[in-house]
Structure formats: structure tokens, C-alpha cells
């Protein structure tokens, strides 16, 4: 049962095109599965998903990623499951932070040109979803579809 459970999607830098569409796709999938979904990111990353979903059909709650880290550390909020999107070392570092501060089951969604090398550098506890996707979202979408929610 996932009713009432909370899911977090953490966006990395939005410079790789597949991120925004996969965040919207996964948020919808989690919503359909009964999760209360929050999408966190930088101001630009949040603006990109909001612009693509003007009536909040898919993205219902958003948060500033740094502010959210503070709220989790101060135990004001937490999640049951979290997905950190990453295509760079900085994204991986944010994923490691969420894995350390939150009790959520952590997933690392690794994409971009250097997806395999970046995935190999992850040494914190997380289930990895890896696809060398930059413009075509389907390799990543297929991997996400295999995750049992």
C-alpha cells in the first residue's frame, strides 16, 4: 500500500534535456501509485517543470532543494521514498546528502553522457537506475518502468 506515503524527486542541474520530462513522468507515475509527491530543485529546475505543467496536473508540490535539506535535518519533514536525478558530480553529492539525512528509501537516477562512470562513483546506499540518455528519454524511461513502487 502506498496511500499516504510521501515521495521526493530531487532534480540536479537542468542542463540535460531528459531530466525535466523524466521528472514529470515519474511524478505522474508515483501520483497514480498513491504517493504524495514533492519535486525539489534549484529555482531554474523548478521553473522548467512548472512551465511545462501550468495547471499542476503532474507536479503538485515543489520545493527549493537547499531549503528542503534544512527542513529534513531539522526533522520538520521527511519522505518514504526518494529519487535523486543526477548527471554530474554535484548532483551525486546532493544524492549522497539526501541518502544521509533522510529515512527515505533512496534511488539514484543517473543519466547523461558519463552515466556509467558517475554511477560507478556512487558509494553511498542507493538503488541505481542508470541510462546513457541525454536527448532521448526512452532508455531512462524503460529503466524507471522496471522499478517496483
Amino acid at each position: 500500500m502506498t496511500e499516504g506515503k510521501k515521495a521526493l524527486l530531487v532534480m540536479g542541474c537542468p542542463e540535460v534535456p531528459v531530466q525535466t520530462s523524466m521528472v514529470i513522468y515519474l511524478a505522474h507515475k508515483l501520483d497514480k501509485a498513491g504517493y504524495d509527491v514533492t519535486v525539489a530543485g534549484t529555482d531554474a529546475a523548478v521553473k522548467l517543470v512548472k512551465a511545462a505543467d501550468p495547471e499542476n496536473h503532474y507536479i503538485k508540490k515543489t520545493a527549493d532543494v537547499d531549503q528542503l535539506i534544512g527542513e529534513i535535518v531539522e526533522q520538520k519533514i521527511d519522505f518514504d521514498i526518494s529519487f535523486a536525478f543526477m548527471h554530474s558530480d554535484a548532483g551525486m553529492t546532493y544524492g549522497a546528502t539526501f541518502s544521509a539525512i533522510s529515512k527515505a528509501r533512496p534511488f539514484a537516477i543517473v543519466f547523461g553522457k558519463n552515466a556509467e562512470a558517475l554511477a560507478a562513483s556512487i558509494d553511498y546506499p542507493a538503488e541505481k537506475i542508470v541510462a546513457k540518455a541525454t536527448h532521448n528519454p526512452n532508455p531512462l524511461k524503460n529503466k524507471i518502468d522496471k522499478v517496483v513502487l
Binding site: G12, C13, S88, Y94, A96
Partner: peptide, 27 residues
């Protein structure tokens, strides 16, 4: 709130504290 991969190192050099600062698009 420090963002990092554990173990997160913080340094002291004289009166100065050295630490890591992470920005998603800048490293």
C-alpha cells in the same frame, strides 16, 4: 546545511574555517 558525500571534511587554518560548498550547476 553542508552538502556532501560522507565523510565530509571541515578544516581549520588559523582563524579560518575551510569547508565545501556545492552548487548543482557549478560543482
Amino acid at each position: 546545511y553542508i552538502i556532501g558525500v560522507p565523510p565530509v571534511a571541515m578544516g581549520v587554518r588559523g582563524k579560518e574555517m575551510l569547508f565545501t560548498y556545492v552548487k548543482p550547476c557549478h560543482g
